[in-house]
Amino acid sequence: MSTQAQTIFFLGATGYLGSQFLLLLNEKLPQLHVVALLRNAIPVRKEQLQKLYSNISFVEGSLDDDAIIQEQAAKVDIVINCGSSDHPASTKSTLAGLETNSKNNPGKPPLYIHVSGCGIVSDNARGEPVEYVKEWSDLGLDLKQCNPENTHLDSDIPIVEAGSRTEDPVRTIIYFPAQIYGVGEGIQKTTMWLRMFLDMTKNVGHAGTWGSGANAMNNIHVKDCAMGLFLILQAALEGRADEGPEGLYFSASMEPKITFHDWTKIMGDYLLSKGIIKEGGTRPMPAEVVDPLGNYGWSLLGGNQSVKPERLYKLGWEPTESKKLSLLDSIPEAVDQVLKDQMRE
Rank of each mutant, 00 (worst) to 15 (best):
D142T: 08
S122R: 02
M196F: 12
W210V: 15
M196P: 00
E135F: 06
G119I: 01
T172A: 12
G211Y: 07
I173R: 00
D199I: 05
H206P: 05
V160N: 05
G163W: 02
R126S: 15
S164W: 07
I157Q: 03
S164H: 04
T201M: 12
R126Q: 11
L153K: 11
Q145C: 06
E161C: 03
Q145F: 08
C146Y: 00
Y175M: 03
L141I: 06
L143N: 01
G163C: 07
G184W: 15
Y112K: 11
G208R: 08
Y175E: 00
L141M: 13
G186V: 04
G205D: 13
M196H: 09
G184K: 09
E128N: 09
I187W: 08
Y181E: 06
G208I: 14
D168C: 10
L143A: 02
I120G: 00
L194P: 02
V130P: 05
A207E: 06
N203F: 11
N124F: 09
H152I: 03
H206V: 14
E131G: 12
M196E: 12
V121C: 02
T209V: 12
M200L: 14
I187M: 11
L139S: 08
G205K: 11
G127F: 09
I180F: 03
L143E: 01
M196Y: 11
G119M: 05
E167C: 03
D168T: 08
L143D: 01
H114T: 00
T190D: 04
G205S: 11
V204E: 12
I120F: 01
Y175S: 01
S155E: 05
E135K: 14
D156E: 13
D168Y: 05
P169L: 13
Y181M: 12
L194G: 01
L139T: 11
P148G: 06
L194H: 10
S155P: 04
V204R: 13
Q145Y: 09
G127Q: 10
A162G: 05
G127S: 10
K202L: 15
V204M: 13
S164E: 06
P177M: 03
D168K: 04
W136Q: 02
I159G: 04
Q188P: 00
D156I: 04
L141S: 03
G140R: 09
I180W: 01
D168I: 00
E128R: 14
G205T: 09
E149K: 14
Q188K: 12
I159Y: 04
D199C: 03
G205E: 12
G119Y: 02
L139D: 11
D154M: 08
W193V: 12
D138T: 05
G213D: 10
N150L: 05
A207R: 07
A207D: 05
